[in-house]
Write a protein that binds this DNA or RNA. Structure first.
Lengths: 252, 252
DNA sequence: GGGTCAAATTCGACATTGTCGACTCTAGTT
DNA sequence: AACTAGAGTCGACAATGTCGAATTTGACCC
């Protein structure tokens, strides 16, 4: 791991959390001398990864990130293939749908199709969810032993009374997920919200993304029809990506 | 400029252009030994900034960029303030509107409100435009001497027969832009497309963004009404950000 | 309006750190 | 099954980034 890149990435991470920070604040957070941080920040700034407030001496994330991320989204075959089926799935079920991938030890939402009832809903693309407290996350954990190890090696954060914080319970849930190829979550991250998720396979037979349907808590549990439609959609996307029944069974 | 950060940023830039590259391809492009590039790429990968193809040995941009960029968009006061007025402006004029900021020597579109006629239109947020061949870019150039110097120090790329490639002509156009606080462009980047743009001021009195209306070439020139509506919208946004008549006049 | 303070920024010497070449390993090809 | 091309590993060297001291900037208060 190259030290200065590690530090630079940490600076981006800090700015992600705190929005706007001065050199000395960054230096304090990283436990480095301000002059060192200054050099790192200026290098990031030269590439547009960080931007300085026009009136002031604080720094924030830069515009280059937007351009990079828009290319990132374009390169994802899963996403472009999934979009039309997600829209279909939202329409059929009446619920919002999400497509997620693994980012470090969390889940990143790479596409979101709103509930079709026309209510005001925040776009969720780019948000992330805890791996152990979301249906999306549980599916990723179930099919990725490395991630499972990562997540279980740290204490599990508690978000609501329903959050699973006992590693043994989580481990047994992951067994269920593998058995049914379906992840479940009821008010474990957000009160009033539940979800179910199914894996999406790539041509190598690996789970490369997860598809979920977000269900209001008072309409839980999901009907058999909803589950079947979710599974069908996830499977259709996988097939378009070149996965076969066979490859998905030997996968992992 | 820290060397390894510079190199890392260049790697991200290459992946932005080429989508998927192997270590040796990156090494060739950067004229560095493959082992050096490998170390850089692995460091970026550890932070999710690049990702390795599941089946294969090539690398692409990583999911962390999406999360970072979504935070970037949230931190931009201009954008959140501008969105509602842009929607209004699109509705009133019947044309698509764009909001841009400066990224290195180009213009990055940070918000796009579609033409309200309901035709299929690609979302343009995250795209970038050449500074010298767009109305947005000309406004940024006119109010940013450093950027002007940057852009004029290199040859001006030609996109269409209308593209201004003569520095002297561009310079005189920038004078006009400053005089009218309005940038114009007719088929200089894309055939069939023209646009007009007006500056948006921040509380320091600087031009921090640009607002434009995209007009089909066959409806050119824009009516006085359209121009006034664009100016009004840009001004309303500026005022919400704390700009005053006075500060915008002493600005720069 | 001037004086004080905190924070950003610049600079150069030192030693830590990243770089590079040689080597190994893996996978795909003929 | 041998061959090739590319990815990935390792350790020595010196180029590079780091850090402390000094300088500048700008904000706030008296």
């Amino acid at each position: 791991m190259i030290q200065s890149i590690d530090r630079a990435a940490k600076i981006l991470g800090l700015l992600q959390g705190a929005r706007r920070l001065g050199i000395s604040e960054l230096a304090a957070a990283l436990e480095l001398p301000p002059s060192t941080v200054h050099g790192l920040v200026k290098s990031l700034q030269a590439h547009g990864l960080v931007a300085q407030e026009s009136s002031g001496n604080r720094y924030a994330l830069g515009p280059a990130l937007l351009k990079l991320s828009s290319v990132y989204l374009d390169t994802l075959d899963v996403r472009s293939r999934a979009m039309r089926w997600m829209h279909e799935l939202s329409r059929k079920t009446g619920y919002a749908t999400r497509l997620g991938v693994n980012l470090l030890d969390e889940v990143l939402i790479i596409h979101h199709d709103r509930r079709p009832d026309g209510t005001e809903q925040m776009p969720e693309t780019g948000l992330n969810l805890p791996a152990h407290a979301s249906a999306l996350g549980k599916v990723l954990l179930a099919y990725n032993p490395e991630l499972e190890h990562d997540v279980l090696s740290k204490p599990l954060a508690e978000f609501t009374a329903e959050t699973v914080t006992d590693p043994a319970v989580l481990r047994s849930q992951l067994g269920e997920v593998r058995k049914n190829a379906l992840g479940l979550e009821y008010e474990e991250a957000v009160i009033g919200e539940a979800s179910i998720a199914a894996p999406v396979y790539g041509d190598s037979g690996n789970v490369i993304a997860v598809l979920s349907v977000v269900i209001p808590a008072d309409e839980w549990p999901a009907s058999e029809t909803i589950v079947r439609e979710l599974r069908d959609a996830a499977w259709t996307i996988s097939r378009e990506l070149g996965a076969t029944v066979w490859s998905s069974q030997v996968g992992r």
